[in-house]
Write a protein that binds this DNA or RNA. Structure first.
Lengths: 228, 228
DNA sequence: AGCTCCCTTGACACTTAATGCCATGTCGGG
DNA sequence: CCCGACATGGCATTAAGTGTCAAGGGAGCT
């Protein structure tokens, strides 16, 4: 009756193999670089067959990316859990923070993994693709939260994109500074920059949208870009 | 004396082969989908050897990506050419526009290529990676333009990132609507959303940055995210 | 216990992407 | 006419990724 031993043992076994694989891969990749490591080496270190590797990961990139992967769901969950009255900039900052905190805070080699990703073009590419999925999820959540129609309104997509831009920029700094800079401060500063756009209200998408931006620069106006 | 016949003939020959390859590849990929087409098919259609293909493109993805590739340089050049007094939101909008215009306006299958990229994960990944490079270029240009120090100031990276977020969102809409929506209008609307952040001045990165966002929501404040 | 069903694994074969190496051909210049 | 630079093609090779099949080991049932 393995109906409730937390997890069905078969699943725990599966998790075990996955962890072993991830561990071996991360260790090798961090030491020798991404393309200097073959899958054969990884499976040798992990003690499974190559075929099994591909039953757990779709590609060599996936071993690394999946490691940071639940974060997408975490971010969305955090956003969904924020109080409804919170302005977007604050809710999104908290959402993004759960991921940044996991990367920087989690004392183990999480930072090293980020550096590996950011410094390896194929990994970066996959990571950005994953982020695009996160963005869609956040946008959906935002649209629901603010009762905006994602079909006509550009705001949800843009707001989610801006938040993830901040996310990426913070990770970049963290990586470049080798963890020396403070993640929380960086996050605050980044969101201070994008907040004016995140928290500007209405944006009525009507046909005559001639409005003035809330910019303090006293310049930028809406004007057609037309045939320049 | 081939010292000035426009281009050295050898280079024109090279361009010819490249075009042939690109044309054959794009035609096949658009019809059969990305991974249903092998390089052997492409080189057969183009009439060159497989080995030659890889002398022109680093990978199958590159055939498609390089097609939209000069755009990065174009965007940066446009930004560099905008009058210095122009607020960032306007200058960036014009910069991004040169690429959007090329995608949507250029009557040939440019839109089809965009749809192919956006609908094919590996291509999307490479495309986003390329965009990240563009972003660094734009950020550098912005930093120079506004005399901000890219080492300490997050604004250049974030502003460039926001502009490219707008870019990507517009492309997405264009792709989804099959070109039905007006590119110029979409671009204007997208930049209307992000402009408040782009054109907000100072952002002094001093140690005590407790400031109020310019939000009209009358809410969003800067507060430490800290240990939530 | 014995049986069966299902899931996981490993081994083998195979396709395809991508790179290295070398021989050949061609253009252009001395 | 010869020579060097460069582009090409063919060949061999590594590595990624997939399909298939047979064996093993739990879990449930009788």
């Amino acid at each position: 009756m393995p109906l409730r031993p937390e997890l069905s043992l078969a699943q725990r076994k599966r998790q075990l193999v996955s962890d072993e694989l991830t561990g071996a891969a991360l260790k090798l990749l961090a030491r020798k670089g991404f393309d200097a490591v073959t899958i054969d080496e990884i499976v040798l270190a992990a003690g499974v067959s190559k075929r099994t590797f591909f039953r757990y990961f779709a590609s060599k990139e996936d071993v690394v990316i999946q490691f940071l992967s639940e974060m997408g769901a975490s971010m969305r969950a955090e956003l969904a859990g924020r109080p409804a009255h919170e302005p977007p900039s604050v809710a999104l900052r908290h959402a993004v923070w759960v991921s940044i905190d996991a990367c920087a805070g989690h004392a183990d080699g999480a930072l090293r993994v980020v550096q590996l990703i950011l410094g390896t073009p194929p990994l970066l590419a996959r990571f950005l693709e994953r982020q695009a999925q996160w963005r869609d999820g956040l946008a959906q959540e935002l649209a629901h939260r603010l009762e905006r129609d994602p079909e006509t309104d550009l705001y949800p997509q843009l707001a989610a994109g801006m938040a993830l831009t901040a996310y990426g920029t913070v990770l970049q700094r963290l990586s470049d500074s080798d963890g020396a800079e403070d993640p929380a401060t960086l996050t605050d500063r980044a969101f201070a920059v994008i907040a004016p756009a995140l928290d500007t209200p209405v944006q009525a998408p009507g046909p005559s949208r001639a409005r003035v931006s809330s910019s303090a620069a006293g310049e930028a106006r809406i004007s057609r870009v037309a045939e320049t």
